[in-house]
Amino acid sequence: MSPVLEVRDLVKEYPVRGGLLRRETNTVKAVNGISLTLERGKTLGLVGETGCGKSTVGRCLVNLVTPTSGAVLLDGQDLSKLTAKELRAARRRIQLVFQDPYASLDPRQSIASILVEPLQLHKLAQGQESQRISELAELVGLSQSVLEQYPHELSGGQRQRVGIARALALEPEIIVLDEPVSALDVSVQAGVLNLLDELQVRLNLAYVFIAHDLSVVRHISHEVAVMYLGRIVEQVTTDKLYENPLHPYTKALISAVPVPDPRIERSRQRILLEGDLPSPLNLPAGCSFKSRCWKSTELCDTLPSLNAQDEHFVACHHPEKA
């Protein structure tokens, strides 16, 4: 099956300007050569700590951010090479749900007008807009009365459902979910995650699920890519990743997830990473994780490539034994 979305060697650099003349003095490599594929109806989880570039990847996918180099291919079409009109059409097929449900809804718009906007922009459901937005509200589990309300009158969970409904309005094939539940209470998270699960099955959606919470990602993803400082360090199916992490970083991340059983929790071995994240302004040569890795050797001064063993991709000179 051909992938619906493909990312090839994506790089995004941000210039750092300084001095009196605001000359470019340095660049931050937010995303440093990432390749991904996503198949129809599947979920790809993208995890990593704050600042590793995962949100930038998400923004590149919907062309909110133009990549410095590399390509985002939607059914083989390079998004950055489209004309404004073609891009508009492509936007129907790939949508984004934002992290912050408070900031991503216009405070001056009622929920109905938020949901009608994408329909009007793309001339969908003409003459039947109000019917369609009722449908959308129902689809995401919002009552009809919410439609007349304003964002500040809704709870975080309701707002995020509005955000999801807005993305669904255009009947996309792919939804990029940029930490869709990390701003919500834990009790509400489950509801939204189950909704996403349900919608995926019903509408055959493909998700790119960006998160820093490994347990959330495990719940929803078919495949997971772990990012560290703009690069993918490990990528494999979800079950394999959690049972048998090969990269030391992944191992450390997974060991940080608490287990809801006090006996196991007490005896569990935790890996505490030492040191700080290196500055993305000044990335060390070689493996970017070596400054915090307990396994690093001289070999790590050269950049490890992302190699596969049985579809299990890992970029490390000293992977765990499978």
Binding site: A84, R91, L105, D106, P107, P118, H122, R166, A167, L170
Partner: peptide
Amino acid sequence: EREFIEAARVIGANDRQ
């Protein structure tokens, strides 16, 4: 810089809209 402006762009609105 607010996200709802970006959200509008994602659903296909242009600058004027």
